[in-house]
Computed example of a mutant assay.
Amino acid sequence: MTNLTMDGCPPNRTVKFYYEASGKNINTFWRKRDYVVVTLGMTVCIIVILSNLLVMGAIFKNRRFHYPIYYLLANLALADFFSGISYLHLMFHTGPWTIKLSIEQWFLRQGLIDTSLTASVLNLLAVAVERHQTIFNMQLHSEMSTRRIFVIIVFIWLVSIILGLIPSMGWHCLCDLKECSTMAPMYSRSYLVFWAILNLLTFSIMVVVYTRIFLYVRHKSQQMSQHTSELRHRETVVNLMKTVSMILGCFVICWTPGLVVLLLDGLGCDECNVLRYEKYCLVLAECNSFVNAIIYSFRDKDMRKTFKEILCCLCNRKSNRGATSEVHFTNTEHEKSKLHIARRREQLNGTPLLRDNMENASTSEGS
Rank of each mutant, 00 (worst) to 15 (best):
L124R: 14
K178I: 08
M169N: 06
L174Q: 03
I153A: 05
R109M: 05
L192A: 09
P167W: 10
M144P: 03
V193D: 12
M138P: 09
I162Y: 10
L174P: 00
V127A: 02
R131F: 13
H132A: 01
L174D: 00
Q139M: 05
S142Q: 04
V129Y: 01
L192N: 10
H172C: 07
W157I: 08
H132S: 01
I166S: 01
M138C: 10
I166W: 03
N137L: 08
Y187V: 09
L165F: 14
I153K: 03
R148Q: 12
Q133F: 08
L124F: 08
K178M: 08
Q133D: 12
V127P: 04
P167I: 09
L174Y: 06
S145E: 04
T182R: 14
L163G: 01
L165M: 15
E130A: 03
W157T: 04
W157Q: 02
W157F: 05
A184L: 14
Q133E: 07
A119N: 03
I135Y: 05
V154R: 07
S145C: 00
L117Q: 04
M144C: 04
V193F: 12
T134A: 09
I162C: 06
V121K: 02
E143A: 13
E130V: 09
I162Q: 09
V129L: 11
F155G: 01
M144K: 13
S120F: 09
V154E: 06
R147L: 12
